[in-house]
Amino acid sequence: MNQTLYIKNMVCPRCIMAVETVLDELEIPYKSVQLGQVDFSQAIPKGKMESLDKKLTGLGFELLESGKSSLISQIKTLIIDQIHHKNEALRVNFSTLLSDQLHHDYTYLSRLFSSVEGITIEKFITKQRIEKVKEMLFYDELTLAEIAFKLDYSSSAYLSTQFKKETGMTPSQFKKMHSPDRRHLDSL
């Protein structure tokens, strides 16, 4: 019997490695570990599940029950993965991506997300994109126009407007800061 666990706060490849390490330490065999989820070929015994929960919590992760909270975690994971970890541009809009991947109508996903998180999916996507822009500005490897193109903004002017609206400063002002205000992805 296959089992899937959903884990909150898995936002990067290091998180995947940390979860794999915990699973190996507890000698829990798994099929795959991805952002936000672990697939098993068999059910995990209750005692091992409690140990897993305790170790993951100690690392800042949270096991999610099946249902609405895991669906919200999956929405966040798909968005974070697409914006922060994929190099190729999204060929469909986020609403289509989320509906196709999660097998739910986007209207349902949007209402659920807003009711639990207190912000819309679109606002969450904007916050993630702005954090990615901050990262790219911080490393100073691309021009603003290149960043706008890479993150699918219609223009660098629109990116600048959205950046100022979210952060209160222009991208140029942000670049001049010595210790920029960047946030952990799981806190957005």
Rank of each mutant, 00 (worst) to 15 (best):
S41A: 09
L188S: 03
L63S: 05
I83G: 01
S160D: 03
L102G: 04
L151A: 07
K132T: 01
T57C: 05
F149N: 10
M17N: 14
F94H: 03
D152E: 11
G168L: 03
L52F: 02
S69W: 10
V38W: 03
T170R: 14
T21R: 14
T120H: 02
F113E: 05
P13A: 09
V133E: 07
S99M: 10
H184A: 14
R14H: 12
P171E: 07
L97S: 01
Y153P: 07
Y158V: 15
V38K: 05
P171C: 08
E20N: 06
G58A: 07
R182W: 08
L137E: 02
E20P: 00
M17L: 13
E146C: 08
E131F: 04
Y158W: 06
K150N: 13
Q37D: 07
I7Y: 06
A145D: 15
V11W: 03
I28N: 03
Q128S: 08
F138S: 14
R91D: 11
F124L: 07
R111E: 12
L5G: 05
S70D: 15
L90Y: 00
F124Q: 06
I44E: 04
P45D: 11
F174D: 09
F149D: 12
S115G: 00
D140R: 14
S115E: 10
H178S: 13
L63T: 05
G36F: 05
T170K: 15
L98C: 04
G47E: 06
T126Q: 12
T107G: 11
E117S: 11
C15N: 04
S172M: 15
L142G: 00
L56C: 06
T21L: 04
M136N: 09
Q162D: 07
